[in-house]
């Protein structure tokens, strides 16, 4: 092991998927909208569809922002763990390759926060 320890030990992964009662942690971030100061953490069933993710999770999380109502969802650019991807809205998170502690970031072209300030 790379940690310098007087004796070896078996590290306990505190946030292992198994600790979340069948659910998984998913991080969401609407880039250029710092009103929400940091990406958000959600605990979600892997069977939830991506469409449900937008309606049931992303919408209440971010709807407070004046830009939110103006989002053209067909133009949204998604990234999954840093890689561009196109989600299948009717497929589950699992089928979209979203696993425990996946980070989903999205940008909304033309909508870059209040007055384009990233906020």
């Amino acid at each position: 092991m790379s940690v310098q320890s007087i004796r070896p030990f078996e590290p306990v992964v505190k946030d292992a998927a198994a600790n979340f009662h069948g659910l998984q942690v998913v991080y969401l971030c609407w880039d250029k909208h710092l009103m929400f100061y940091a990406p958000i953490a959600k605990m979600l069933p892997p069977s939830m569809t991506f469409g449900e993710l937008i309606d049931a999770e992303i919408t209440p999380a971010y709807s407070r922002h004046p830009d939110f109502a103006r989002i053209d969802w067909s133009a949204v650019e998604w990234r999954k763990d840093g890689e561009a991807f196109t989600p299948a809205l009717d497929k589950s998170l699992a089928d979209n390759g979203i696993t425990h502690k996946t980070a989903i970031h999205f940008t909304t072209p033309g909508l870059d926060g209040i007055g384009g300030s990233g906020f």
Partner: peptide
């Protein structure tokens, strides 16, 4: 965290 001087 686990103490590296006594991980037990």
């Amino acid at each position: 965290y686990r103490p590296t001087w006594e991980p037990e």
